[in-house]
């Protein structure tokens, strides 16, 4: 029992990533700071990694969460790609959340794939941080 409690309380490690051809890093940089201020260990991917590189970074850094940000309209290709490569690499337990400019009608498909959050500009830090925490603790209970 005590071991499980530690696992649940362990600091959340989160990779904030911008996969694909998209230099709009304002949201990613702001969220990286917000996650850090919320007590998480934050790793930032830098710009322009491929989905493959993002998944590899997540595995190498042994993160709990990958937070994807895209504002270029390519989320329907790129987000699922990251998720799929993660699963292939044995990172199926890594929580994947996403955000950016995501039209309503795209959301159901992403949610079905287990990519949640899908926050847009103007969302509150509190809500986003809470979402990440909730998903991580749910995942950790499975451990």
């Amino acid at each position: 029992m005590p071991k499980k409690a530690t696992a649940l309380q362990r600091k959340i490690r989160i990779l904030v990533a911008k996969p694909g051809l998209d230099g709009h890093d304002r949201g990613a940089l702001v969220l990286a700071r917000a996650f850090r201020d919320a007590g998480m260990e934050v790793i930032y991917s830098g710009l322009l990694p491929s989905p493959e590189q993002v998944a590899q970074m997540a595995m190498d850094e042994d993160v709990d969460v990958v937070a994807l940000s895209l504002l270029n309209g390519a989320h329907m290709t790129t987000f699922p790609k990251v998720k799929k490569i993660l699963e292939k690499k044995g990172g199926g337990g890594i929580v994947v959340v996403g955000g950016g400019i995501i039209p309503e009608e795209d959301k159901p498909k992403l949610l079905r794939l287990g990519i949640t959050g899908l926050y847009g500009p103007g969302s509150s830090f509190e809500e986003i941080v809470e979402h990440v925490r909730r998903r991580v603790s749910k995942e950790r209970r499975k451990e």
Partner: peptide, 10 residues
Amino acid sequence: ERAHGEVGRC
């Protein structure tokens, strides 16, 4: 390869 899914999007 890097253009996949991004052509004509924005």
